[in-house]
Amino acid sequence: MTSIAFYGSSLLSSYWNGAATYYRGMLRALAGHGYDITFYEPDVHDRGANRDMEVPDWARVVVWEGTHDALRCVAAEAGKADIVVKASGVGYEDDMILDEVMKAARPGALRLFWDVDAPATLAEMQADPDSPLRAALPDLDMVLTYGGGDPVVQAYTALGARTCVPIYNACDPDTHHPVPAEARFAGDLGFLGNRLPDREARVEEFFFGPARMLPDMRFLIGGSGWDHVPRNVTRLGHVGTRDHNAFNRSPRMVLNIARDSMAATGFSPATRVFEAAGAGACLITDYWEGIEQFLEPGEEVLVARSGAEVAQLLREIRPEQAEAIGQAARKRILAGHTYDKRAEQVDALFRAHMAKETA
């Protein structure tokens, strides 16, 4: 059985960890293809105190203290694996983790960087010629990214990556599926997302703006950091993954807002898109290039280019129309965008590389 040592932010907690859904869906599906997975996550940023998942039966999880000694100890275990993965955004000494695990990897092991925030990572490397990741790229076997399409592939290749392949977000239908609506999440429009510098202005435009335009409608916002909101907006704080299905099913519509870098790059659908579609929610998203590759605008998703357009959709779309759009989205996602299908793609990449190494 091929073993994977995966060094990421957290598998067990989604707290300040937007990649949790992606990791869970992707690694569970890879385990189904016969991979023996060990996930190494540091106990930082209160993630350990905010777990929303038990250790699964499809991966081992090693939680390590946020110290240099513990880092070196878990990095040394990379030497036992056939495939060594360093993900972006671990949240503690990312450059040191990359250096230590790749040094520990045994000769012949597949060594890769898995970028779950490619537009932001690329911007940092392009601004810093001395970036440790940038220096390491030519020595890595491949880069996999959360999304980004050709612009991300071209940018990574220009910086020295041997191979770069986007592995898009997807839906795990066992995790994200329709459930009964809950009164605590009832409303006209819901949005989930932590307050981040490169998201704040777009949330003001696409969510708070429409809330002010439609004072008689009810809006809900989940996520950390939202302190001052219009009077018709209910602050929910952190919403754990176990409540995401109910959150997506209860309001008339839910909203996806791309972060600045992802909107600019395009071809970067957030996990929220697939979570919402999997639950059969009627999704409004801000515009980004490539959306039709995943959902058909007007039929499977509603697209708004401004806060005023979000408000107009809220005025026009009746509950029965919203339900029909949500069901069409779920059908499309289950047909072509599940983590099982993404795992088939990754498995083929791994097998092709390992066959080339042994040829």
Results as ranks from 00 to 15, higher is better:
356 K>D: 10
184 R>Y: 06
193 G>F: 01
281 A>Q: 11
171 C>F: 00
255 L>Y: 13
299 E>N: 15
246 A>Y: 00
267 F>Y: 15
196 L>Q: 13
269 P>K: 11
310 V>C: 06
298 G>K: 07
129 P>D: 12
304 A>T: 04
89 G>W: 14
194 N>F: 07
60 R>N: 15
262 M>R: 11
116 V>L: 15
235 R>W: 08
236 L>Q: 08
53 M>V: 09
2 T>Q: 06
334 L>T: 06
286 D>R: 00
76 A>T: 10
80 K>A: 12
169 N>D: 07
237 G>T: 05
24 R>M: 01
303 V>I: 10
70 A>K: 12
256 N>V: 07
354 M>I: 14
264 A>L: 07
350 F>A: 13
290 G>M: 05
180 P>C: 04
96 M>N: 07
223 G>L: 01
5 A>F: 05
318 R>W: 07
190 G>C: 09
209 G>V: 01
299 E>P: 01
344 E>W: 08
3 S>L: 02
198 D>M: 01
182 E>P: 01
283 L>N: 03
5 A>N: 03
224 S>D: 04
92 Y>D: 08
24 R>E: 00
182 E>C: 07
226 W>D: 00
141 D>N: 08
283 L>G: 08
335 A>D: 11
197 P>S: 07
92 Y>K: 03
72 R>E: 08
74 V>C: 08
130 D>Q: 10
299 E>F: 05
157 T>I: 00
77 E>I: 04
108 G>M: 10
123 A>K: 05
171 C>D: 13
317 I>L: 01
337 H>C: 05
347 D>I: 11
337 H>P: 04
311 A>D: 08
75 A>W: 04
30 L>I: 06
193 G>N: 03
231 R>H: 11
147 G>R: 08
80 K>M: 11
226 W>Q: 02
342 R>E: 07
269 P>G: 09
276 A>V: 09
55 V>K: 10
4 I>Q: 01
319 P>M: 03
80 K>I: 08
200 E>D: 08
171 C>K: 01
312 Q>A: 14
75 A>Q: 00
98 L>W: 04
148 G>L: 09
136 A>T: 15
303 V>T: 09
65 E>L: 04
312 Q>V: 03
237 G>N: 10
333 I>M: 09
329 A>Y: 00
331 K>L: 11
179 V>M: 05
161 A>F: 02
10 S>D: 08
49 A>H: 14
99 D>W: 03
85 V>E: 02
9 S>I: 06
206 F>N: 01
54 E>T: 13
278 G>N: 10
126 Q>A: 14
181 A>S: 06
38 T>Y: 11
33 H>T: 01
152 V>I: 15
346 V>K: 12
167 I>Y: 02
109 A>F: 06
197 P>R: 03
269 P>W: 13
182 E>M: 11
99 D>K: 12
333 I>S: 04
343 A>N: 05
12 L>R: 09
60 R>H: 14
185 F>V: 12
185 F>W: 15
332 R>Q: 03
168 Y>W: 05
112 L>S: 01
327 Q>V: 14
219 F>N: 12
321 Q>G: 09
161 A>G: 05
263 A>S: 10
